[in-house]
Amino acid sequence: MADAKVIPFDDDRSRGGAARPARRRPGSGRRATERAASGEASAEPGQEAAAGRAGRLSRGEKRRTGRERSGEAVVSPLPEQAAGAAAGDGPANANANANATPAPEPGAAGAWDRRVAGGLAFLRRRLTGDYEVDEFGFDAELTDQVLMSLLRPMYEKYFRVEVKGIENIPSEGGALVVANHSGTLPLDGLMMQVAVHDNHPAGRHLRLLAADLVFMLPVVNELARKAGHTLACAEDAERLLRRGEVVGVMPEGFKGIGKPFSDRYKLQRFGRGGFVSTALGAGVPIVPCSIVGAEEIYPMIGNAKTLARLLGFPYFPITPTFPWLGPLGAVPLPTKWTIQFGEPIPTDGYPPEAAEDPMLMFNLTDQVREQIQHTLYKLLVQRRSVFF
Protein backbone atom coordinates (compact mmCIF):
# COMPACT_ATOMS: atom_id res chain seq x y z
CA MET A 1 0.00 0.00 0.00
CA ALA A 2 1.22 3.51 -0.78
CA ASP A 3 2.31 5.72 2.09
CA ALA A 4 -1.22 6.99 2.79
CA LYS A 5 -1.83 9.42 5.64
CA VAL A 6 -3.14 7.75 8.81
CA ILE A 7 -5.79 9.68 10.67
CA PRO A 8 -5.26 9.46 14.50
CA PHE A 9 -8.37 8.50 16.47
CA ASP A 10 -7.26 9.87 19.89
CA ASP A 11 -10.41 11.61 21.09
CA ASP A 12 -11.56 10.31 24.50
CA ARG A 13 -15.20 10.40 23.57
CA SER A 14 -14.71 8.44 20.35
CA ARG A 15 -12.38 5.82 21.83
CA GLY A 16 -13.97 5.50 25.23
CA GLY A 17 -10.59 5.19 26.96
CA ALA A 18 -7.99 7.37 28.63
CA ALA A 19 -6.48 10.07 26.50
CA ARG A 20 -2.80 9.94 25.74
CA PRO A 21 -0.79 12.93 27.01
CA ALA A 22 -0.40 15.57 24.35
CA ARG A 23 3.12 16.31 23.14
CA ARG A 24 4.36 19.78 24.02
CA ARG A 25 5.79 21.97 21.33
CA PRO A 26 9.08 23.71 22.11
CA GLY A 27 8.51 26.79 24.29
CA SER A 28 4.90 25.96 25.19
CA GLY A 29 5.76 25.49 28.89
CA ARG A 30 7.55 28.81 29.13
CA ARG A 31 4.68 30.72 27.50
CA ALA A 32 2.22 29.16 29.91
CA THR A 33 4.41 30.22 32.89
CA GLU A 34 4.66 33.76 31.53
CA ARG A 35 0.90 34.02 31.10
CA ALA A 36 0.38 32.84 34.71
CA ALA A 37 2.94 35.39 36.01
CA SER A 38 1.30 38.25 34.12
CA GLY A 39 -2.03 37.43 35.69
CA GLU A 40 -3.75 36.29 32.47
CA ALA A 41 -6.69 33.99 32.95
CA SER A 42 -5.69 30.50 31.97
CA ALA A 43 -8.02 28.29 30.02
CA GLU A 44 -9.63 25.34 31.61
CA PRO A 45 -7.71 22.07 31.26
CA GLY A 46 -10.14 20.61 28.73
CA GLN A 47 -10.12 23.75 26.60
CA GLU A 48 -6.33 24.04 26.74
CA ALA A 49 -5.91 20.42 25.64
CA ALA A 50 -8.36 20.94 22.82
CA ALA A 51 -6.55 24.12 21.73
CA GLY A 52 -3.23 22.28 21.74
CA ARG A 53 -4.62 19.53 19.57
CA ALA A 54 -6.22 22.03 17.22
CA GLY A 55 -2.84 23.71 16.76
CA ARG A 56 -1.27 20.43 15.81
CA LEU A 57 -4.05 19.19 13.53
CA SER A 58 -3.91 19.72 9.80
CA ARG A 59 -6.79 21.26 7.90
CA GLY A 60 -8.30 17.89 7.05
CA GLU A 61 -7.85 16.66 10.64
CA LYS A 62 -9.62 19.74 11.97
CA ARG A 63 -12.63 19.00 9.79
CA ARG A 64 -12.56 15.40 10.97
CA THR A 65 -12.41 16.43 14.65
CA GLY A 66 -15.36 18.78 14.12
CA ARG A 67 -17.44 15.96 12.67
CA GLU A 68 -16.57 13.72 15.63
CA ARG A 69 -17.65 16.40 18.10
CA SER A 70 -20.96 16.92 16.26
CA GLY A 71 -21.69 13.22 16.48
CA GLU A 72 -21.20 12.40 12.76
CA ALA A 73 -19.89 9.00 11.84
CA VAL A 74 -16.34 9.16 10.50
CA VAL A 75 -15.47 6.66 7.77
CA SER A 76 -11.86 6.17 6.74
CA PRO A 77 -11.70 6.40 2.91
CA LEU A 78 -10.61 3.36 0.90
CA PRO A 79 -7.43 3.77 -1.16
CA GLU A 80 -9.30 3.85 -4.46
CA GLN A 81 -11.69 6.47 -3.05
CA ALA A 82 -8.77 8.58 -1.91
CA ALA A 83 -7.24 8.33 -5.37
CA GLY A 84 -10.56 9.25 -6.96
CA ALA A 85 -10.85 12.38 -4.79
CA ALA A 86 -7.70 13.87 -6.30
CA ALA A 87 -9.76 16.42 -8.16
CA GLY A 88 -10.68 18.13 -4.85
CA ASP A 89 -8.70 20.71 -2.89
CA GLY A 90 -6.28 20.09 -0.07
CA PRO A 91 -3.02 18.26 0.52
CA ALA A 92 -4.73 15.01 1.50
CA ASN A 93 -6.29 14.67 -1.96
CA ALA A 94 -3.05 15.55 -3.71
CA ASN A 95 -1.12 13.02 -1.62
CA ALA A 96 -3.64 10.27 -2.33
CA ASN A 97 -3.53 11.00 -6.08
CA ALA A 98 0.25 10.97 -6.14
CA ASN A 99 0.50 7.62 -4.35
CA ALA A 100 -2.39 5.88 -6.12
CA THR A 101 -1.47 3.07 -8.54
CA PRO A 102 -2.59 4.09 -12.05
CA ALA A 103 -4.86 1.73 -13.97
CA PRO A 104 -3.05 -0.19 -16.71
CA GLU A 105 -3.49 1.43 -20.08
CA PRO A 106 -3.69 -0.59 -23.33
CA GLY A 107 -0.34 -0.19 -25.05
CA ALA A 108 2.27 -2.09 -26.96
CA ALA A 109 2.48 -4.83 -24.34
CA GLY A 110 -1.27 -5.45 -24.47
CA ALA A 111 -1.26 -5.47 -28.27
CA TRP A 112 1.57 -7.99 -28.34
CA ASP A 113 -0.23 -10.17 -25.81
CA ARG A 114 -3.35 -10.21 -27.96
CA ARG A 115 -1.28 -10.93 -31.06
CA VAL A 116 0.52 -13.84 -29.43
CA ALA A 117 -2.75 -15.25 -28.10
CA GLY A 118 -4.32 -14.97 -31.54
CA GLY A 119 -1.31 -16.66 -33.14
CA LEU A 120 -1.45 -19.55 -30.69
CA ALA A 121 -5.18 -19.98 -31.28
CA PHE A 122 -4.55 -19.96 -35.04
CA LEU A 123 -1.86 -22.66 -34.72
CA ARG A 124 -4.16 -24.77 -32.56
CA ARG A 125 -6.90 -24.62 -35.21
CA ARG A 126 -4.47 -25.51 -37.97
CA LEU A 127 -3.07 -28.48 -36.04
CA THR A 128 -6.49 -29.81 -35.06
CA GLY A 129 -8.05 -29.19 -38.48
CA ASP A 130 -10.66 -26.85 -37.03
CA TYR A 131 -10.94 -24.59 -40.12
CA GLU A 132 -13.04 -24.44 -43.26
CA VAL A 133 -12.05 -24.82 -46.91
CA ASP A 134 -14.59 -24.40 -49.71
CA GLU A 135 -15.05 -26.70 -52.68
CA PHE A 136 -12.39 -24.81 -54.67
CA GLY A 137 -9.78 -25.14 -51.91
CA PHE A 138 -10.09 -21.53 -50.69
CA ASP A 139 -8.93 -21.12 -47.08
CA ALA A 140 -10.26 -17.74 -45.89
CA GLU A 141 -8.54 -17.83 -42.50
CA LEU A 142 -5.12 -18.69 -43.93
CA THR A 143 -5.53 -16.01 -46.60
CA ASP A 144 -6.50 -13.29 -44.12
CA GLN A 145 -3.93 -14.02 -41.43
CA VAL A 146 -0.93 -15.33 -43.38
CA LEU A 147 -0.99 -14.81 -47.14
CA MET A 148 -2.27 -11.22 -47.04
CA SER A 149 0.22 -10.42 -44.28
CA LEU A 150 3.07 -11.68 -46.48
CA LEU A 151 1.95 -9.66 -49.51
CA ARG A 152 1.02 -6.48 -47.63
CA PRO A 153 4.60 -5.13 -47.10
CA MET A 154 5.26 -5.36 -50.84
CA TYR A 155 1.89 -3.74 -51.54
CA GLU A 156 2.25 -0.88 -49.04
CA LYS A 157 5.99 -0.22 -48.78
CA TYR A 158 7.60 -1.48 -51.97
CA PHE A 159 5.09 -0.70 -54.74
CA ARG A 160 3.16 1.90 -52.66
CA VAL A 161 -0.08 1.02 -54.43
CA GLU A 162 -2.69 3.75 -54.77
CA VAL A 163 -6.25 2.50 -55.22
CA LYS A 164 -9.04 4.45 -56.90
CA GLY A 165 -12.70 3.66 -57.51
CA ILE A 166 -12.92 0.76 -55.04
CA GLU A 167 -16.56 1.76 -54.45
CA ASN A 168 -17.38 0.52 -57.96
CA ILE A 169 -17.12 -3.06 -56.70
CA PRO A 170 -20.52 -3.94 -55.15
CA SER A 171 -20.68 -4.65 -51.43
CA GLU A 172 -22.61 -7.86 -51.97
CA GLY A 173 -23.44 -10.18 -54.81
CA GLY A 174 -21.29 -11.34 -57.69
CA ALA A 175 -19.11 -9.14 -59.88
CA LEU A 176 -16.51 -9.81 -62.58
CA VAL A 177 -13.39 -7.62 -62.39
CA VAL A 178 -11.58 -7.46 -65.76
CA ALA A 179 -8.02 -6.06 -65.72
CA ASN A 180 -4.99 -5.62 -67.96
CA HIS A 181 -2.09 -8.02 -67.45
CA SER A 182 1.62 -7.18 -67.48
CA GLY A 183 4.91 -7.37 -65.64
CA THR A 184 6.58 -10.65 -66.80
CA LEU A 185 5.56 -12.30 -63.52
CA PRO A 186 1.89 -12.17 -62.36
CA LEU A 187 2.43 -9.85 -59.41
CA ASP A 188 -0.28 -7.54 -60.70
CA GLY A 189 -2.97 -10.10 -59.92
CA LEU A 190 -1.69 -10.52 -56.36
CA MET A 191 -1.54 -6.76 -55.77
CA MET A 192 -5.08 -6.39 -57.12
CA GLN A 193 -6.20 -9.08 -54.68
CA VAL A 194 -4.67 -7.19 -51.74
CA ALA A 195 -6.20 -3.93 -52.99
CA VAL A 196 -9.72 -5.36 -52.92
CA HIS A 197 -9.23 -7.13 -49.58
CA ASP A 198 -7.73 -4.16 -47.73
CA ASN A 199 -9.65 -1.25 -49.25
CA HIS A 200 -13.17 -2.47 -49.90
CA PRO A 201 -15.54 -1.43 -47.08
CA ALA A 202 -16.99 -4.95 -46.98
CA GLY A 203 -13.54 -6.59 -46.93
CA ARG A 204 -14.36 -8.75 -49.93
CA HIS A 205 -12.08 -11.43 -51.36
CA LEU A 206 -11.09 -11.39 -55.02
CA ARG A 207 -11.17 -14.87 -56.54
CA LEU A 208 -8.71 -14.83 -59.43
CA LEU A 209 -8.95 -17.06 -62.49
CA ALA A 210 -5.45 -18.41 -63.20
CA ALA A 211 -3.86 -20.23 -66.13
CA ASP A 212 -3.35 -23.98 -65.95
CA LEU A 213 0.43 -23.47 -65.64
CA VAL A 214 -0.10 -22.07 -62.13
CA PHE A 215 -1.67 -25.35 -61.01
CA MET A 216 1.10 -27.44 -62.53
CA LEU A 217 3.87 -25.91 -60.40
CA PRO A 218 4.60 -27.52 -57.03
CA VAL A 219 3.99 -25.37 -53.93
CA VAL A 220 2.55 -22.62 -56.13
CA ASN A 221 -0.40 -24.88 -56.87
CA GLU A 222 -1.29 -25.31 -53.19
CA LEU A 223 -0.80 -21.65 -52.33
CA ALA A 224 -2.94 -20.54 -55.27
CA ARG A 225 -5.79 -22.82 -54.19
CA LYS A 226 -5.55 -21.64 -50.58
CA ALA A 227 -5.64 -18.01 -51.73
CA GLY A 228 -8.89 -18.58 -53.62
CA HIS A 229 -7.57 -18.86 -57.17
CA THR A 230 -9.15 -21.34 -59.52
CA LEU A 231 -8.71 -22.55 -63.08
CA ALA A 232 -9.62 -20.04 -65.76
CA CYS A 233 -12.59 -21.89 -67.20
CA ALA A 234 -16.15 -20.70 -67.79
CA GLU A 235 -17.71 -23.38 -65.56
CA ASP A 236 -15.73 -22.48 -62.41
CA ALA A 237 -16.11 -18.76 -63.03
CA GLU A 238 -19.88 -18.98 -63.40
CA ARG A 239 -20.23 -21.11 -60.27
CA LEU A 240 -18.31 -18.54 -58.25
CA LEU A 241 -20.31 -15.65 -59.66
CA ARG A 242 -23.64 -17.33 -58.94
CA ARG A 243 -22.47 -17.82 -55.35
CA GLY A 244 -22.02 -14.06 -55.05
CA GLU A 245 -18.19 -13.95 -55.23
CA VAL A 246 -16.03 -11.21 -56.75
CA VAL A 247 -14.08 -12.89 -59.56
CA GLY A 248 -11.03 -11.41 -61.25
CA VAL A 249 -9.89 -12.22 -64.79
CA MET A 250 -7.09 -10.91 -67.02
CA PRO A 251 -8.14 -11.75 -70.58
CA GLU A 252 -4.77 -10.90 -72.16
CA GLY A 253 -3.24 -13.98 -70.55
CA PHE A 254 0.36 -14.82 -71.45
CA LYS A 255 0.20 -12.42 -74.42
CA GLY A 256 -0.10 -9.52 -72.00
CA ILE A 257 2.22 -10.59 -69.21
CA GLY A 258 4.96 -11.71 -71.61
CA LYS A 259 4.89 -8.85 -74.09
CA PRO A 260 8.12 -6.88 -74.73
CA PHE A 261 8.82 -3.64 -72.90
CA SER A 262 8.41 -1.67 -76.12
CA ASP A 263 4.70 -2.63 -76.14
CA ARG A 264 4.04 -1.58 -72.56
CA TYR A 265 0.53 -0.38 -71.75
CA LYS A 266 -0.75 -1.49 -75.17
CA LEU A 267 -3.55 -3.96 -74.55
CA GLN A 268 -3.39 -7.25 -76.41
CA ARG A 269 -6.38 -9.10 -77.75
CA PHE A 270 -8.99 -10.00 -75.13
CA GLY A 271 -9.51 -13.55 -76.34
CA ARG A 272 -12.90 -14.52 -77.74
CA GLY A 273 -14.98 -12.71 -75.15
CA GLY A 274 -15.58 -15.73 -72.94
CA PHE A 275 -15.58 -13.58 -69.79
CA VAL A 276 -18.48 -11.53 -71.20
CA SER A 277 -20.48 -14.68 -71.85
CA THR A 278 -19.83 -15.80 -68.26
CA ALA A 279 -20.98 -12.44 -66.84
CA LEU A 280 -24.11 -12.48 -68.99
CA GLY A 281 -24.94 -16.02 -67.90
CA ALA A 282 -24.61 -15.11 -64.21
CA GLY A 283 -26.21 -11.66 -64.61
CA VAL A 284 -23.42 -9.85 -62.75
CA PRO A 285 -21.81 -6.47 -63.55
CA ILE A 286 -18.41 -6.20 -65.26
CA VAL A 287 -15.95 -3.89 -63.47
CA PRO A 288 -13.03 -2.73 -65.70
CA CYS A 289 -9.71 -2.37 -63.86
CA SER A 290 -6.58 -0.52 -65.04
CA ILE A 291 -3.17 -1.17 -63.44
CA VAL A 292 -0.26 1.22 -63.98
CA GLY A 293 3.22 0.46 -62.66
CA ALA A 294 3.46 -3.29 -63.24
CA GLU A 295 4.92 -2.95 -66.75
CA GLU A 296 8.23 -1.59 -65.43
CA ILE A 297 9.01 -4.05 -62.61
CA TYR A 298 10.74 -6.47 -65.05
CA PRO A 299 11.45 -4.63 -68.32
CA MET A 300 11.42 -7.51 -70.78
CA ILE A 301 13.95 -6.75 -73.53
CA GLY A 302 14.22 -10.28 -74.93
CA ASN A 303 12.69 -13.74 -74.97
CA ALA A 304 14.75 -16.95 -75.03
CA LYS A 305 12.17 -19.01 -76.91
CA THR A 306 14.28 -22.17 -77.20
CA LEU A 307 14.92 -22.27 -73.46
CA ALA A 308 11.23 -21.56 -72.85
CA ARG A 309 10.21 -24.59 -74.94
CA LEU A 310 12.66 -26.82 -73.10
CA LEU A 311 11.28 -25.73 -69.72
CA GLY A 312 7.66 -25.82 -70.84
CA PHE A 313 7.14 -22.10 -70.27
CA PRO A 314 5.26 -19.77 -72.63
CA TYR A 315 8.31 -17.46 -72.65
CA PHE A 316 11.65 -17.05 -70.89
CA PRO A 317 12.22 -13.38 -70.12
CA ILE A 318 15.48 -11.52 -70.52
CA THR A 319 15.63 -8.23 -68.60
CA PRO A 320 18.42 -5.73 -67.88
CA THR A 321 19.10 -7.63 -64.63
CA PHE A 322 18.01 -11.22 -65.34
CA PRO A 323 19.67 -13.66 -65.84
CA TRP A 324 22.85 -11.58 -65.70
CA LEU A 325 22.70 -10.94 -61.94
CA GLY A 326 21.41 -14.40 -61.05
CA PRO A 327 18.84 -14.52 -58.22
CA LEU A 328 19.40 -10.82 -57.53
CA GLY A 329 18.10 -10.08 -61.01
CA ALA A 330 14.73 -11.57 -60.03
CA VAL A 331 14.09 -8.72 -57.59
CA PRO A 332 11.44 -6.42 -59.14
CA LEU A 333 12.07 -2.73 -59.53
CA PRO A 334 10.29 -0.58 -56.90
CA THR A 335 7.87 1.21 -59.21
CA LYS A 336 4.91 3.28 -58.04
CA TRP A 337 1.56 1.58 -58.78
CA THR A 338 -1.95 2.85 -59.34
CA ILE A 339 -4.96 0.53 -59.53
CA GLN A 340 -8.23 2.10 -60.68
CA PHE A 341 -11.58 0.31 -60.77
CA GLY A 342 -13.88 1.82 -63.37
CA GLU A 343 -17.63 2.25 -63.62
CA PRO A 344 -19.38 -1.13 -63.68
CA ILE A 345 -21.06 -2.28 -66.87
CA PRO A 346 -24.40 -3.95 -65.98
CA THR A 347 -25.44 -7.18 -67.65
CA ASP A 348 -28.62 -8.08 -65.77
CA GLY A 349 -30.80 -6.25 -68.28
CA TYR A 350 -30.11 -8.72 -71.06
CA PRO A 351 -32.24 -11.81 -71.67
CA PRO A 352 -30.81 -15.27 -70.82
CA GLU A 353 -30.16 -16.11 -74.48
CA ALA A 354 -27.92 -13.03 -74.83
CA ALA A 355 -24.92 -15.12 -73.72
CA GLU A 356 -25.17 -16.96 -77.06
CA ASP A 357 -25.22 -13.79 -79.16
CA PRO A 358 -21.72 -13.38 -80.66
CA MET A 359 -22.32 -9.82 -81.80
CA LEU A 360 -23.37 -8.72 -78.32
CA MET A 361 -20.36 -10.43 -76.77
CA PHE A 362 -18.05 -8.73 -79.26
CA ASN A 363 -19.52 -5.30 -78.54
CA LEU A 364 -19.30 -5.69 -74.75
CA THR A 365 -15.76 -7.08 -74.99
CA ASP A 366 -14.69 -4.11 -77.09
CA GLN A 367 -16.40 -1.70 -74.66
CA VAL A 368 -14.54 -3.15 -71.67
CA ARG A 369 -11.21 -3.15 -73.51
CA GLU A 370 -11.60 0.45 -74.67
CA GLN A 371 -12.51 1.62 -71.18
CA ILE A 372 -9.42 -0.04 -69.68
CA GLN A 373 -7.14 1.34 -72.41
CA HIS A 374 -8.51 4.87 -72.06
CA THR A 375 -8.01 4.78 -68.28
CA LEU A 376 -4.43 3.53 -68.71
CA TYR A 377 -3.57 6.48 -70.93
CA LYS A 378 -5.18 8.90 -68.51
CA LEU A 379 -3.24 7.48 -65.54
CA LEU A 380 0.02 7.59 -67.51
CA VAL A 381 -0.50 11.28 -68.26
CA GLN A 382 -1.15 11.99 -64.58
CA ARG A 383 1.88 10.00 -63.39
CA ARG A 384 4.85 12.16 -62.43
CA SER A 385 7.48 9.43 -62.47
CA VAL A 386 7.82 5.67 -62.78
CA PHE A 387 9.19 5.42 -59.25
CA PHE A 388 7.42 8.29 -57.45
Rank of each mutant, 00 (worst) to 15 (best):
N199V: 02
H200R: 09
P201M: 00
A202R: 04
G203K: 03
H205K: 14
H205C: 14
R207G: 03
L208I: 15
L208P: 02
L209F: 05
A210R: 06
A211D: 05
A211W: 06
D212T: 07
L213G: 03
V214F: 01
F215C: 02
F215A: 00
F215V: 00
F215P: 00
M216S: 11
M216D: 02
L217H: 00
P218H: 00
V219T: 02
V220M: 05
N221V: 02
L223G: 07
L223C: 09
R225Q: 13
R225P: 04
K226V: 15
A227G: 11
G228N: 15
G228M: 13
G228H: 12
G228D: 14
H229G: 09
T230K: 05
T230Y: 07
L231W: 11
L231R: 14
A232Q: 13
C233P: 00
C233V: 15
E235I: 07
E235C: 01
D236E: 15
A237D: 09
A237Q: 13
E238S: 06
E238C: 06
R242W: 02
R243H: 12
G244A: 11
V246P: 10
V246R: 09
V246H: 13
V247S: 10
V249Y: 10
M250E: 12
M250I: 06
P251F: 11
G253T: 08
G253N: 07
G253Y: 06
G253I: 12
K255N: 12
G256W: 04
G256Q: 03
I257P: 03
G258E: 10
G258C: 11
K259H: 05
F261K: 10
S262I: 09
S262K: 15
D263H: 03
Y265R: 03
L267G: 12
L267A: 11
L267W: 08
Q268G: 13
R269S: 08
F270C: 08
R272A: 03
G274Q: 06
G274H: 03
F275Y: 15
F275S: 10
F275Q: 11
V276M: 08
V276W: 06
V276E: 11
V276R: 10
T278F: 01
A279N: 05
A279E: 08
L280Y: 07
L280A: 07
G281N: 15
G281C: 09
G281S: 15
A282L: 07
A282N: 09
G283I: 08
V284P: 07
P285L: 11
P285I: 04
I286F: 08
I286C: 09
I286Y: 04
I286K: 14
V287K: 13
C289H: 13
I291M: 02
V292P: 00
G293F: 02
A294I: 03
E295P: 00
E296R: 01
E296K: 01
